[in-house]
Design a protein around this nucleic acid. Structure first.
Lengths: 209, 209
DNA sequence: GTCTATATTGCGATAGAC
DNA sequence: GTCTATCGCAATATAGAC
């Protein structure tokens, strides 16, 4: 039973800090608030974190890396060679990740400025890599004449902007279920690309792992 | 010649502060930096502002109010009774405003949390009003069978998310001109709504006042 | 590991001379 | 209006007892 649902202090601190950073922002959150939320006094925090900045990095950590891995994995699992199927798999992973890890994703976007230079540059680079990956999928669909691409960068911006926005308001139990959200935004995406039978294609494929 | 291009101190302070708030965020910006950018010492700032919070409110001020007015005016000027024409006019105003006033819009979104309660609630209310206005335009197009509406709230979220994203990266002299940006995003919007001849309709109408 | 001090820094804001 | 000097406070971070 070791390592089960039990959260150690470091994990509790990260979770509570993430909640506060999400609600109030990194700069506006004090370590006293974090400590209090975690059931500790300020001084005790430093048995678990190196600094406030270190805590932020733990939270933002490797969100973008994990997003890229996740979406690439989704695409890799697709058997079909249809570029639109591949793009859909990417979008499903993209949207699901943004909803399921909404707080982390939101912090990762909003607090990019709060990171020290090196870490920030790493994230920026990885993000460009991520956008290139999606843009390539869009372009493949375009070359196969299955999509009418206006500007692949802007299409990707659109996907990114929408998912980021979802991360700002999604919470389980809202008006729309996660599956509905994935389905709707996938329809929007395919429509934006003038994919034939966009609505039909998008239905019922919302189950990304 | 009075009141011409001459910027008074208060205006300089607002502009420099907006630049810094945009780049680093409100909390991370010190009034000493603002003063320095405006060519003053800290103490002198207080001859022009009441407090740091007051300065933020001056900058965020009435962005959302002006956005709503602007977009409503764009729609009101449309002679055509075609709901899609009206929606397009709104989108052109929406996008143009977000690009031209990018810094203010961006701050208005990112620093909503930094506002005192009352001011924040005002903005939230106005924002809901704005989104309702856009949603009504979407629904009109849907009822007229000129658009296939999936979920008008989500369509509006999509417009909002995209324009907000644009406000984060647009600057004059970039890869795409403002007119190109408006045209592209309008095409995306009309495509999302399955408007017939979306691409043709969106072309060459990008000149919002 | 926890806690109670406390050191240190830098912030917003003010006072008062010019 | 500008400046210099400083107040008062709250923040991060540390020291050291338990």
């Amino acid at each position: 039973m070791a390592g089960s649902a039990e959260r150690n202090s470091a994990q509790v601190i990260r979770d509570e800090a993430a909640k506060l950073f999400f609600e109030r922002g990194y700069d506006a959150t004090t370590l006293r608030q974090v400590a209090s939320a975690a059931g500790l006094k300020v001084g005790s925090l430093y048995n678990h974190i190196g600094s406030k900045e270190d805590l932020l990095q733990q939270i933002m950590g490797s969100v973008i890396d994990e997003l890229l891995e996740r979406v690439q994995a989704c695409v890799a699992e697709v058997e079909s060679k249809d570029p639109v199927d591949r793009l859909q798999a990417a979008l499903a992973g993209h949207l699901t990740f943004h909803a399921e890890r909404a707080q982390q994703v939101f912090i990762g976007n909003a607090e990019l400025r709060s990171l020290p230079q090196e870490a920030r540059e790493n994230v920026v680079k990885k993000r460009a890599e991520y956008e290139s990956f999606l843009a390539a999928l869009v372009d493949e669909a375009g070359k196969a004449k299955l999509a009418e691409v206006i500007d692949s960068k802007i299409h990707v911006y659109s996907f990114v902007a929408q998912a980021t926005h979802v991360a700002g308001w999604y919470h389980p139990g809202g008006r729309l279920s996660l599956n509905e959200i994935v389905e709707i935004y996938t329809r929007l995406a395919l429509r934006e690309l003038n994919v034939a039978d966009a609505d039909e294609r998008a239905v019922g494929k919302a189950l990304a792992k």
